[in-house]
């Protein structure tokens, strides 16, 4: 097997690549109502590390990813890329800063202009930045090779002539072309087949390692997120439930929602952890059966309380803040003590 251990973590605290404070994104939907997509999210991404954002549809994970590159700018809160505060920049400065932070979208085929050839798609960023066309062929070929594509075969093709996995590689090449500091991946593998998914995950892993890239990896699949990330942030209905190191997260997770996600994981992805085998057997059925509340009118207090087996009156009155319970492990729950007794 081609398994290789990751380089050991550097001991000294890393320089922050991305610092987000109190991010709020709301979308008006008429009649004075608004969707509370993201409500007060803090996020820290040290340089060279990967942060995984985990959650189900509607939890605001993609909105966070887009707000980081100011598409659209958040309604409140700050996003700092290195030392530069993106939320305070004017349009021209923001345009310059965006070259340092790139995004990869979920559906690789629709992310690419169907009329353009691969070489032009990959060169789009540099051409916007006025790079000389003389370097084009050599640089395009080099980047295509680095994402595992054969330049001679794909250079002159259009997206429809490529498979989904190949299109995703082209998207990654496009993002890398400007040599960014931060890469945001929004569900980059969820539209791909299992065997191709592994290829793309490996590519992201080796690329970030070789280039020292920082990455925000957004996905709904616990085992995928765990595999690529150093730190995992679990979101539910626009808020952060739990932030924890990915190593051993399936054993260390304490928030009832994280436990629910883990218990919902199909057997094949659980590995052989006995701790989870009994977790799913005794998962609270009431919590599992309930539906996601509307983000138009999220529940008061803790947003997970309507599905939580531990919910009490206090959860309805008071929103829990994130508390650090172990180094790098923070949780937003009023019942930290009782969560330990959860399956």
């Amino acid at each position: 097997m081609t398994l290789a251990p990751h380089a050991p973590a550097t001991p000294e605290p890393a320089r922050p690549a991305l610092t987000v404070r109190d991010l709020v994104v709301e979308f008006p939907v008429g009649r004075g109502q608004k969707v509370h997509a993201v409500s007060g999210v803090d996020l820290d991404l040290p340089a060279g590390r990967t942060l995984g954002i985990l959650g189900e549809s509607g939890c605001g994970k993609s909105t966070v990813g887009r707000a980081l590159i100011q598409l659209p700018p958040p309604d409140a809160g700050t996003v700092r890329l290195g030392a530069e505060e993106l939320t305070a920049l004017g349009p021209e400065e923001l345009r310059r800063a965006r070259a340092r932070i790139q995004i990869i979208m979920q559906d690789p085929v629709s992310a690419l202009n169907p009329r353009r050839k691969v070489k032009d798609l990959v060169w789009e960023g540099p051409s916007i930045w006025g790079r000389a066309a003389a370097d084009k062929d050599a640089e395009v070929d080099a980047i295509l090779r680095s994402v595992g594509l054969d330049p001679a075969t794909v250079r002159d093709r259009r997206p429809h002539e490529l498979s989904g996995g190949q299109c995703q590689r082209v998207c990654i090449a496009r993002a890398l072309m400007l040599d960014p500091e931060v890469l945001i991946c929004d569900e980059p593998v969820s539209s791909l087949d299992v065997s191709v998914q592994a290829q793309i995950l490996n590519l992201l892993e080796t690329t970030t390692r070789e280039r020292g890239l920082s990455m925000v990896f957004i996905a709904h699949d616990v085992s995928v997120v765990k595999n690529v990330s150093d730190q995992v942030m679990v979101m539910y209905l626009g808020k952060v439930c739990e932030v924890l190191p990915s190593d051993g997260m399936h054993l260390a997770a304490v928030h009832p929602y994280t436990r629910l996600l883990l218990a919902s994981l199909p057997e094949a992805q659980r590995g052989r952890s006995d701790a989870l085998a009994h977790a799913s057997a005794s998962a609270e059925p009431a919590a599992v059966a309930a539906e996601l509340p509307s983000p138009l009118d999220p529940p008061s207090g803790c947003r997970f309380r309507t599905r939580c087996p531990l919910a009490t009156d206090r959860c309805a009155e008071e929103a829990p803040g994130l508390l650090e319970i172990a180094p790098g492990h923070r949780i937003a729950c009023h019942h930290i003590e009782s969560t330990r007794s959860l399956p």
Binding site: H6, V196, A198, S229, Q269
Partner: peptide, 24 residues
């Protein structure tokens, strides 16, 4: 065997390269 091996599962430590099936 290759298909089963290529699914990430929770027992793998973070940043493990998956045994992917090459080609398509």
């Amino acid at each position: 065997r290759a298909l089963i091996a290529s699914i990430p599962h929770l027992d793998l430590s973070p940043h493990t390269l998956l045994p992917a099936i090459e080609g398509r």
